[in-house]
Design a protein around this nucleic acid. Sequence first.
RNA 1: GCGGCUAUGGUGAAGUUGGUCAACACACUGGAUUGUGGCUCCAGCACUCGUGGGUUCGAGUCCCACUAGUCGCCCCA
Length: 421
Amino acid sequence: MVYQTPRGTYDILPDEVRKWHAVEEVIRRITQYYRYREIRTPYFEDTAVFKRENDSSDMVNKEMYTFQMGRDSYTLRPEGTAGVIRAFDQHKLYGSMELPAKFYYMGPMFRHERPQKGRQRQFTQFGVENIGVKSPEVDAETIALGYDIVKALGVSSVKVCINTLGDDESRAAYRAALREYFAPHLDELCTDCKRRYEQNPLRILDCKVDRDLECMKNAPKLSEYLNEESKAYFDRVLKALDAAGIPYEVDESIVRGLDYYTHTVFEVISTRPDSGAQSTIFAGGRYDHFVSYYGGPDLSGIGFAIGMERLIALAEDDGYAFASEDACDVYVIGLGDVASEVLSLSTKLRKANLVTEANYVPRSLKAQFKSADRSGAKYVVILGEDEVKNGTVNIKRTADRTQVSVALADAAETISAWEKE
RNA sequence: GCGGCUAUGGUGAAGUUGGUCAACACACUGGAUUGUGGCUCCAGCACUCGUGGGUUCGAGUCCCACUAGUCGCCCCA
């Protein structure tokens, strides 16, 4: 029996991990410039944290990994925002933190979807949440943060698409208008849309199945139902984006997959033709009622999440220069029955801050030199039975093949001195 | 949940209308060079072609099922 990773999951092998470290480093650095702080929440929560009443999204309704332990129901987190807000409320951070409270998280998310390019069942998101200050400039700054990260990794061909869902009043008016409009067309809609009609008619417009229906084309537009306040807010968001130097496109079709969004929503996509069917790099929006939903005060927040796998793939496509190898300073060759001497020497070298690879297996000199080459070691140390007897060791510099024989006790010192030249 | 494509060694892969030893390359191991490397040369390295059935005198090559991968629909990061 050959075991393998479950469908939609994958191993990140050492060569690949190097890229992850590099990308994580860039993300952490840029996020610090914006003064966001990391928060780590559990990988699973009570199911109720994610399964909110009246939520019409597929993610919540058919893609969650939910399991029962005794009488308790838990769910592997499908997204990051819910956990962060839950933690914010649970620990009453609105009382102890400066507002806006700025959090970021990085970690695995789980959704039971059919895997394909850029979509896996366990995937990794980096996300931020900015809670407590409702201002168009905060919205723009949040988008700028994500945009900076994408740009810092050399990703080209990105497009910022933005839209507004308006405030409660605007959306209520629009919802009513949509219901009235679609009522005579209900039979034409797909089964998903029939559900959406009840739960969240806005998402009918987003449906790819019914996109070409005649009744879709003439459906009322959200922009026609925005009240003055919502319009003004959105106009200021666009101005703020200009101020932040972010190019954007207003796209009225963006309504987002989660139901908790209000006002600003955005999706940043890759326009590369080879990025597959999953082109969204990061996406998010503002939420007016999410903080109070979990028992906190009536604060508004905004956030987004980046798909790390997609981001790394795009950085690679655009030729981002990832470090090529893990460096090695010294390779210790052992000849004869000297394994324990090799170990004690290697330990000393490492204590002297030298990255050291040691050979403990009886192999030919030639084979060990080959390994030393492959390790990329800058120095090769040869320790044989003769040397052990004399208390000496041979040190060879790879670059010019100079070799010296020094006292065993002076090995680390000799290499360090050579290093400083 | 639905559809297309794919499945040969550590890797990349050849395998012709089903009919010799399952090419070739890289990697790896050993040797030429019994303690000094990246070149060269030589040798070794798939009782077997995702799994299970079937057709046939004969199947990696055809058929069916299953499994996995992959791409797309949907959904979304």
